[in-house]
Design a binder for these strands. Structure first.
Lengths: 192, 192
DNA sequence: GTACCTTGAGAACAAGCATTCTCAGGAGGC
DNA sequence: GCCTCCTGAGAATGCTTGTTCTCAAGGTAC
């Protein structure tokens, strides 16, 4: 037990997932080899494979990790705005606005991964669907707090606006889709 | 001139583009090899390369071809509904509903291709952005006809709803995102 | 000190695949 | 009939990459 390694398994895993997140998100799954992950993380191929049976396994671990991290970032970004008095559902679009300016922004990692059909299996697909479901659930908690009388269709509609805004910002490379989505959301909230 | 081939260049090109559309759309760009295109089209590798300098060229030709065909399908689907008295902008969602039931449906080919970063270059990206721009322009013509007094933000908002509905149907595998988007659009049109 | 176990570095292996090359056959021109 | 050109079939090439294997170094137990 407790071999005196230069790096614990947990530390190595974090380095790997950080590298995976950077590379997979920016270059796509097919565009990143296991050797690239090794080079970027400093974790040897041997150890990589001792912790993940295959590249597919690593991809699944990455998606799960990214899910928890992205959701945390997103809810933090919204909380900061609601604490300052903003409407929670509208604040989602301001959070997206902030995200789009991140260097290397390339849209939603989950939607992008889903599109790489040849790299993706049913496990990945399930994690991706779960992520989107999770986002809708989170929006629902925001809605029950700030808009308790909103009709059932409101939250799914906001979710569609969010995903549409994300993919269009990736296509066009500017913020205008988010502005359009936000205005639509304002109108829906007013009349809901 | 006019060599007595079994197949004219134009016929071969059509076979190739048909095969490319089926394969690239269903399996992604990275998931389809030039040999697969040959097998599915019956056009030899030699001829394939004589008409397209590289796989990237073929992908660009496919995207352009799919653009014209998809736009034609979309506008036909909407015209059929407006002829029957439907509102043009709302009919877009009914057209999507029809599309989702197509066997092998996998969302928007252009968004999916854009996500395959390692397979895509700037030419492809330009065709993809042009396709989405084109869709917005088309929505604008529908709006000027059926909703001449609509505010400027309406068409971009509908476009965001459409793209959001498309990607979410691909994620969840059901029609509910389209229903949500349609209801949202109805409310926006009522109050616009 | 010695045997053992784990690890990293990197070579080796095996596919998959874009692209090019070879070869033989068929059509046209004369 | 003969030469030439074009074509398809498919082999050959070269590169990328997922995965495994080899070997030597260093730490641990006793």
């Amino acid at each position: 037990m407790s071999p005196a390694q230069t790096l614990t398994d947990d530390d190595a895993e974090r380095l790997v997932l950080d590298a995976a997140d950077r590379l997979f998100y920016e270059q796509g799954i097919a565009g990143v080899g296991m050797a690239d992950i090794r080079d970027a993380s400093g974790v040897s191929l041997r150890r990589l494979y001792s912790q993940h049976a295959s590249k597919g396994d690593l991809v699944a671990a990455w998606l799960r990790d990214r899910h928890t991290r992205w959701m945390r970032w997103f809810s933090d970004a919204i909380e900061a705005r609601t604490d300052a008095g903003a409407d929670a559902l509208l604040a989602t679009f301001d959070a997206l606005d902030e995200w789009v300016d991140t260097p290397g922004y390339r849209g939603c990692a989950f939607l992008n991964s889903l599109a790489e059909t040849s790299q993706i299996d049913d496990v990945h697909r399930a994690v991706i669907a779960e992520h989107k479901r999770s986002l809708i659930d989170y929006l629902a908690t925001l809605a029950t707090r700030d808009h308790p009388d909103a009709p059932d269709w409101l939250v799914p509609a906001i979710a569609v606006l969010i995903d549409g805004a994300i993919v269009q910002t990736a296509v066009f490379g500017d913020h205008s889709p988010i502005a359009a989505a936000r205005i639509a959301a304002e109108h829906l909230l007013e009349n809901a």
